[in-house]
């Protein structure tokens, strides 16, 4: 464990908690893409199946359980409890255009053709594009609540910190995982224009509205 990975995990946890609290306290999921949240629940489900097969550390297990629990709770709030506040008309990204190519790629490019490894690879590839429905929804509505921008900031920051963690681990441990790194770079790049808007607008107290 290194400071970049720990900070990255805490940033990820902060994002997940911020979103869940925002929806729970405001009793509304307006502006939130339910599709992205379903994709994230799928990412965690396919990645953390090793909860059933191997124990790495109390921290690892605890975080995985929290991530899975919060992501399913968020999906439950959006599609069941607070369904009336779900803005389906703006959450129209065709997720099948993500799942099918990612699923195919996971079969073609992986470290080991075993079920658990292919599911892990699918989860890594899917996570790198899972935020697209949310970013697409913001571009359609033309704005985002400030709390939603903080959620996106921490979510984007987590994988950017993981990139530094992978540089650190390569240098100090000789460890690297090309699949995770390439997907992580793609994932972070997708946040770049949001990061620009976040820094130039939200951090200056303005509302995030598009076109910039």
């Amino acid at each position: 464990m290194n400071i970049f990975r720990l900070t990255g995990d805490l940033s990820h946890l902060a994002a997940i908690i911020i979103l869940l609290l925002k929806i729970w306290k405001s009793r509304s999921c307006a502006g939130i893409s339910g599709k992205s949240q379903v994709l994230f629940a799928l990412v965690f489900t396919t990645r953390y199946l090793d909860l059933l097969t191997s124990f790495i550390s109390l921290y690892n297990t605890t975080m995985k359980v929290i991530y899975i629990g919060c992501s399913y709770a968020t999906v439950y709030l959006i599609y069941m409890k607070l369904k009336a506040t779900y803005d389906g008309n703006h959450d129209t990204f065709r997720v099948e255009f993500l799942i099918v190519p990612v699923g195919g790629l996971a079969f073609l490019v992986n470290h080991d053709f075993s079920p658990l490894e292919i599911l892990w690879t699918f989860s890594i590839y899917l996570e790198s594009v899972a935020i697209l429905p949310q970013l697409f929804m913001i571009s359609k509505t033309g704005e985002a609540e400030t709390i939603t921008t903080h959620y996106l900031f921490f979510l984007g920051l987590y994988r950017a910190l993981y990139l530094i963690n992978w540089i650190w681990r390569f240098y100090f441990e000789g460890f690297f995982d090309m699949i995770a790194i390439v997907a992580g770079v793609v994932q972070t790049i997708l946040y770049c224009d949001f990061f620009y808007l976040y820094v130039t607008k939200v951090l200056k107290g303005k509302k995030l509205s598009l076109p910039a």
Binding site: R5, D50, I56, H111, G174, F175, M178
Partner: peptide, 10 residues
């Protein structure tokens, strides 16, 4: 190639 099976990250 990566150290196999070192899935210790979240």
């Amino acid at each position: 190639c990566p150290i196999r099976g070192k899935k210790d990250e979240l």
